[in-house]
């Protein structure tokens, strides 16, 4: 039961994050909103890192440099997310984001790109994505 509450709240926070970014962007601009939320999030995470003391900074050296840069993508993610919410609303934005996210991960897994373990493609996965697209078509019709 506790796990369900955590997962439920996790989803709520992700949506809230997008909505808050869109709201803040209206007042101070999108790049300003992205810069401030990432800065305060970074400071908070750093504080927690110092409290839990599980930082093994050297372990970053064992990671391929490309993978270390993933965080920088957040700038474009926040920007496109905010514009999408402002143009088509929260529901449609999140729905399309989830489809693109699952579909690209699916393609990367199927091809074994970026050194991920290659996964066999399964028919129900196509059906699942097809149903999600059908849902978006209903939403946007």
């Amino acid at each position: 039961m506790k796990g369900i509450i955590f997962a439920f709240l996790g989803g709520a926070f992700i949506t809230l994050q997008g909505v808050a970014n869109a709201r803040i962007s209206q007042d101070i601009g999108t790049w300003q909103a992205a810069t401030i939320t990432q800065l305060t999030g970074f400071l908070m995470a750093l504080l927690i890192l110092l409290l839990v003391r599980d930082g093994k900074w050297r372990s970053f050296m064992q990671v391929k440099p490309l993978y270390l840069t993933g965080g920088a993508l957040a700038a474009i993610i926040i920007f496109t997310n905010v514009v999408a919410i402002q143009k088509v609303g929260v529901t449609l934005s999140i729905a399309v984001i989830l489809i693109a996210q699952l579909a690209l991960t699916f393609i990367i897994d199927a091809n074994g790109w970026f050194g991920v373990v290659k996964q066999k493609v399964k028919m129900p996965q196509f059906i699942g994505i097809g149903m999600m697209i059908a849902g978006v078509l209903i939403l946007s019709s």
Binding site: G70, A74, T80, N81, S93, V96, I97, L104
Partner: peptide, 15 residues
């Protein structure tokens, strides 16, 4: 834009 955001989330997740 939502599709771009979702694709980048997927990439970022893997990285």
């Amino acid at each position: 834009f939502a599709a771009i955001a979702g694709s980048l989330v997927s990439l970022q997740n893997i990285f």
